[in-house]
Write a protein that binds this DNA or RNA. Structure first.
Ligand SMILES: [Zn+2]
Ligand SMILES: [Zn+2]
Ligand SMILES: [Zn+2]
Ligand SMILES: [Zn+2]
Lengths: 132, 132
DNA sequence: AACGTTATGTAATAATATAACATTTATAAG
DNA sequence: CTTATAAATGTTATATTATTACATAACGTT
């Protein structure tokens, strides 16, 4: 059971846009798309993005400076994320693999660090791009 | 056995700086530090960084937009990187764990993607920061 | 020497993200 | 319902990160 988050007006507009896009979106592309809805400044976008990331509705793809809607209904925690990224078409999808997440969540080494979060990005060629 | 790369003048200046710093450095901080050596423009820095990343002498910490010297003599390939990042003091170190790298290099799922590269970033508190 | 490749120099600009400050709206006590 | 508090918004300016475009120089090979 996940905590309900009532999104604010801007948060909802921006989440809906990213979610409907079905893929990663960049902040200024989001900005461009929501200007007709009254969101005019970068900061308005970044604030909504920050909050959406915090509550796990979206994730940031760090290597791409882009944001994607969480595709894994159980991951509202956003403390353990894994993505697969096609280096040719830039298609991104969230990996939901319980063995992988278990392995990484339990990972520890002798550094004395306590890990509370991770982000993993796999790169390669997707099915489509491989066969070209 | 790794391929020898003869670094060019700018590449050497910039690699030596990052390497000696012992931690992650940001591009414009590098620029500031090498201006006395005649490297005056961002592009000169970014070109050297690109090359150094390509040949595996440094890695980019994507979540921090920073660059760190490879701490793992065997990883001149740069296709499989893992880091631990302290969210308090921002200390970063490269994780060298053969079980982990084996597990991730062999990872595959049913998406049809062929993974050729990955980057993993763990976050938490380092020993020092934990005990504060 | 001639050629192709890699690296450099320089200026301008694009793309990504935050600081600072004023105001408004939502939530929860009292 | 009023007051207090936290969360969200609006707006302007600015900081930070990264690339485009074009000209020149150095390097490695034949
Ligand atoms: Zn998710
Ligand atoms: Zn693809
Ligand atoms: Zn390395
Ligand atoms: Zn620390």
């Amino acid at each position: 059971m996940q905590k309900e988050h009532n999104l604010s007006k801007n948060q909802k507009i921006i989440f809906d846009l990213i979610d409907k896009s079905g893929g990663p979106m960049k902040a200024y592309s989001i900005l461009f798309n929501v200007q007709k809805k009254g969101i005019k400044a970068p900061l308005q976008v970044y604030r909504a993005l920050d909050k959406l990331v915090e509550i796990g509705k979206i994730h940031k793809i760090e290597s791409r400076n882009a944001f994607i809607a969480c595709q894994n209904s159980s991951c509202q925690i956003s403390k353990a994320t894994a993505f697969s990224i096609c280096e040719s078409c830039e298609n991104v999808s969230e990996i939901s693999n319980s063995k992988l997440s278990k392995y990484l969540s339990n990972f520890s080494d002798n550094s004395g660090m306590k890990y509370s979060k991770y982000n993993l990005e796999f790169f390669g060629l997707c099915k489509k791009c491989k066969s070209k």
